[in-house]
């Protein structure tokens, strides 16, 4: 069993962790740990970050050899700060993630990814090896391709259980190993149950929705998830286009910046482009409606909701906004809204 490296953000390239001989361990905000984050962070802060910190404060984590933080948003920056207090002995690396996509930012991020790779190899006393990184990327890309195939099946027909099954695969890649996730994915490419009708096709997006049981609930509430865009679903399994650049780290930077459309990253030549991307994905997946699940206090998403709403309205695509902590605990509260939304959409 490899030693584990903790991380919290979808911009963390898992192949680098595995190439250095570690196992990835994404810290999901699921825990019965008591609410203690308020001792270190403001109460009006993203519940994802606070719950992850609760886990650290309550020692509700496996043994970690180090933590990788990305300063993707203010809350993530503060989490890295608080980690120093909560776990002063943990080795930590904080990567600077540019907000805009352009040649300079890609150069900068590629250096940051290289710094991460070298740090991880050093933490494991392993000689730095670009070959190992390339091998891991190849494996990761196989997983990404399998995930894409499953997503394609999801968007065409409603197969009960497929969405939660996909989430289990992705969670395995995030918290265990790409190899195991790959085996699971190859078994899932053929749906276990036949296609069914009678559900409302909905595209869901937002920050994170990681519990497979949530997707089963959605089905109970008459929803057919045609596609999803969360940092715990498609945004996490980013295909690395190795042909994008001769430098492997720049290829990674290009792939993560361009394919991982978290609201915090923008195409500066097209301000507000996230709204068009949401419309496009909803249409491509044959959805009749769109639901956003946002974490409370998540400025990057909340600030973009008005333009996303406008863009969807323009296309006459019904839109539902749900705010919470994106765990099963808060999902019950949303039942009436989701059911009413599917009743409104029809089949």
């Amino acid at each position: 069993m490899n030693k584990k490296i903790g991380f919290t953000c979808a911009y963390t390239p898992v192949p680098l962790i595995e190439a250095a001989g570690f196992s990835p361990f994404r810290i999901f905000p699921e825990s019965k740990a008591p609410d203690q984050a308020g001792h270190l962070l403001h109460d009006n802060l993203c519940p994802h970050v606070k719950k992850v910190l609760d886990r650290a404060l309550a020692d509700d984590l496996p043994e970690l050899e180090g933590m990788v933080f990305i300063n993707s948003c203010d809350s993530m920056r503060r989490l890295a700060d608080a980690w120093h207090e909560a776990k002063p002995d943990d080795p930590i690396i904080l990567l600077d993630l540019p907000s805009g996509i352009n040649s300079l930012s890609l150069d900068f991020l590629s250096k940051e990814y290289e710094r991460l790779a070298k740090t991880l190899f050093k933490w494991n006393n392993e000689p730095f090896s670009t070959e190992k990184i390339k091998d891991e990327i190849a494996k990761w890309n196989l997983l990404a391709a399998s995930v894409k195939k499953i997503e394609g099946i999801m968007s065409r027909n409603y197969f009960p259980g497929i969405a939660s099954g996909l989430q289990e695969i992705i969670n395995t890649a995030a918290t265990d190993s790409t190899d195991k996730a790959l085996v699971m994915a190859q078994n899932k490419i053929e749906p276990e149950k036949p296609a069914k009708g009678g559900q409302s096709p909905v595209f869901v997006f937002g920050n994170l929705l990681f519990d497979p049981k949530v997707y089963d609930l959605f089905e109970e509430w008459n929803m057919h998830v045609t596609a999803s865009d969360f940092c715990t679903t498609s945004r996490f399994v980013t295909q690395v286009d190795t042909k994008a650049d001769d430098n492997i780290f720049r290829s990674m930077a290009i792939s993560y910046m361009e394919q991982t459309p978290c609201a915090r990253t923008m195409d500066t030549t097209k301000p507000g482009n996230i709204a068009q991307k949401i419309v496009q994905r909803a249409k491509e997946s044959n959805a009749k409606g769109v639901i956003v699940f946002t974490l409370k206090f998540c400025d990057p998403y909340l600030a973009r909701i008005p333009m996303i709403r406008q863009a969807l309205q323009k296309e006459s695509i019904p839109f539902l906004m749900l705010e919470g902590d994106c765990t099963m605990g808060s999902m019950g509260q949303q039942q009436t809204r989701i059911e009413a939304f599917t009743e409104m959409l029809g089949v």
């Binding site: 948003c73 203010d74 907000s99 301000p271 400025d299 990057p300 600030a303 333009m307």
Partner: peptide
């Protein structure tokens, strides 16, 4: 200094 400020400018 903050992600919200940038988001507002994008809007």
């Amino acid at each position: 200094p903050c992600t919200a400020g940038l988001a507002i400018l994008e809007n």
